[in-house]
């Protein structure tokens, strides 16, 4: 049964068409651009932390599967892990997120509502967002993995396209139901722009139109028990994405920690591949009208 399902899904992917990979370069900040309906994007990324004294170095890989349910609704599923040299490699949990864009047309400011359930443990370091004071960067995995967090995370995403610039702001509120630490807050902002505004007539891989560069800033804002930037992690990060082919994108971002609770440097890499029309093809495989 499992084998049959796998073959069906694999053939749906292989039959998929291509899409022009013009992906946002941000790792943390969300824009209002949703996944196209029926498209599936698979992304593998890593966040590596370079420690200051007393902190542990780590690499936290994660995989995302992003699916465009409708033009205004995108769902994402994550699996994540973490590995620290001299310590251990551990599975740190999963996340399921949904983004909903209430307005179908483009406006000056485009709001998107975000709701995520996280079943992770305290060894999680992917830092898809920073909230509260940021993650514990000093303890050993053996101490952190038994501490489970069942979290519900909400975000208000505001995003604008102004000429060729995208300007996005995210406001985060997270409640961990496994601990009484109140509601934690965080933020992220980003601006990005393609390196070339016009498309050239020839096919090219290294030309400027395939690159989008920008900068993002993100961090924690404490919690209802103590709101503010005191004892919280904050980062500023240049970002760049490169549309390697029509449907795949590479992203890179070095982040600089601005406070003592941050790592001095975070290095982020991501590679995404987009399968077009997966929803339609799966419906067809099951004999349903798309």
């Amino acid at each position: 049964m499992f084998k049959a399902c796998f073959l069906l899904l694999a053939s749906a992917f292989l039959l998929s068409g291509t899409a022009f990979g013009q992906e946002s370069p941000f790792f943390v900040t969300y824009t209002h651009h949703m996944e196209e309906p029926g498209n599936l994007e698979i992304e593998t990324s890593t966040t590596s932390g370079i420690p200051r004294s007393g902190q542990r170095s780590y690499t936290a890989p994660y995989m995302e599967m992003e699916y465009g349910v409708t033009a205004q609704w995108t769902s994402e599923f994550y699996l994540e892990g973490q590995s620290s040299p001299g310590d251990s490699s551990v599975f740190t949990g999963w996340r399921f997120e949904n983004r909903y864009k209430p307005l179908s047309r483009e406006h000056w400011i485009n709001p998107v509502l975000y709701l995520e359930y996280e079943s992770v443990n305290e060894a999680s370091r992917i830092q898809k967002e920073v909230e509260g004071g940021g993650p514990d960067l000093t303890s050993r995995n053996a101490l952190l993995t038994p501490e489970h967090a069942h979290e519900v995370e909400t975000k208000l995403i505001l995003s604008s396209d102004y000429h060729d610039w995208n300007i996005s702001e995210n406001f985060i509120a997270t409640k961990n139901f496994s601990e009484s630490e109140g509601v934690e807050f965080g933020y992220s902002f980003g601006v990005a722009r393609p390196l070339a505004r016009l498309a050239s007539c020839a096919e090219c891989r290294f030309c400027r139109e395939n690159f989008i560069a920008g900068i993002e800033m993100y961090g924690g804002l404490g919690s209802t028990l103590g709101f503010g930037v005191h004892d919280t992690a904050h980062y500023v990060a240049p970002v760049i994405s490169w549309a390697v082919s029509d449907n795949s994108t590479l992203r890179f971002s070095p982040s600089w920690g601005l406070t003592h609770e941050s790592n001095p440097v975070l290095i982020r890499f991501g590679y995404s591949y987009e399968f077009q029309g997966v929803g339609t093809r799966i419906s067809k495989l099951f004999g349903r009208k798309p």
Binding site: S24, H33, D164, P194
Partner: peptide, 11 residues
């Protein structure tokens, strides 16, 4: 018909 706002304006 999808939105193509993510393509740069001049494109």
């Amino acid at each position: 018909m999808p939105s193509f706002s993510k393509l740069p304006e001049l494109q």
